[in-house]
Amino acid sequence: MGKKIFFISRRMLLFVAGALGMLLLVLFFNATGIFTDYIVQIINISLINVILAVSLNLINGFTGQFSIGHMGFAAVGAYTSATVTTLIAKVTPRLPYTEFININGYIVFILALLLGGIVAAGIGFLIGFPSLRLKGDYLAIITLGFGEIIRTIFNNIDYVGGPRGLLGIPKFSNLIMIFVITLLSVIAIRNLVFSTHGRALLSIRENELASELVGVNTVRYKITAFTIGAFFAGIAGGLQAHLLQIAHPTQYGFLYSILVLIMVYAGGMGSITGSIIAAFALTFLSEGLRTALPGLGDLMHVKIGDEWRMVVYSLLLIIIMLFRTEVLMGMREMKLLVPEEEEHHGQHA
């Protein structure tokens, strides 16, 4: 034994190759000026939203819990990692700011991201406990309350800027960085859900009592789902803070949590593919509306405020709920994400 422990299937290699191909395409378009930096920035944000949506899907879609405070975990990851990197940037004043961005800087960044993820996971572990006793709507309120409490706390800690936010975060996140981390996150969660542990999570969603009575330790698995989901949300938060170079309490409010929730629902509860597509579609829609609405207003000689964007979003959420059963993907996955050996076993592909 001990020769080759990790097994990478051909299909997974294809998936990774396809994804890398897209990355190269984007880099190429950016270099030739077809994609402006603004478009690349939207892609960056979309990729971060992919991590957020897929990790929330793990909690809500696959495990059937109901968390609506996901950005609370992202906030924890963002503030934790950004505090570390800004602190290190400060205590190494010999290096001018720009020079901090070198290979050592990246090692620090990766470690800081991981730390952010781990602290967020710790909080997720704690938030998992109410899920043991509470179902559905009550759990929603608790997670909502948790998200607000986290925000209030950061709002009141002067060390991280309080209501002004944490400023001057080094810009470590770039397209390649974000892309690779998003890819790894997606693969990790995909591997989890297509495993016996993933089936244990699904069985909790399907019927919790029956799940316990075929031998699944539902307590442990529910907490596991929250912990892992929070870990990845923390990573996403860290990436975002180092992309926008600011962590501000209002970034992590209820509204953003709901946007992520919309992505999960629009893409399909229990579909990673759906979450990926929806994260891109809705991020682009959001940015599109941000530029299109004022333009439309100019045409009609009225001022159309940014609030209309949210009006569109909320209508979208209502419409999805009223007319859906299977929105984008339902519970299906694109073929490349389904392991070969699972191909016929579920209703996935």
Binding site: D137, A140, L255, M310, L317
Partner: peptide, 21 residues
């Protein structure tokens, strides 16, 4: 039941943003 709950969140957002818009 969760469908109505999420819809209620949507209705709430709609009212708030529609009024401020």
């Amino acid at each position: 039941r969760l469908s109505s709950l999420i819809t209620a969140i949507g209705v709430s957002m709609f009212i708030e943003y529609f009024f401020s818009a």
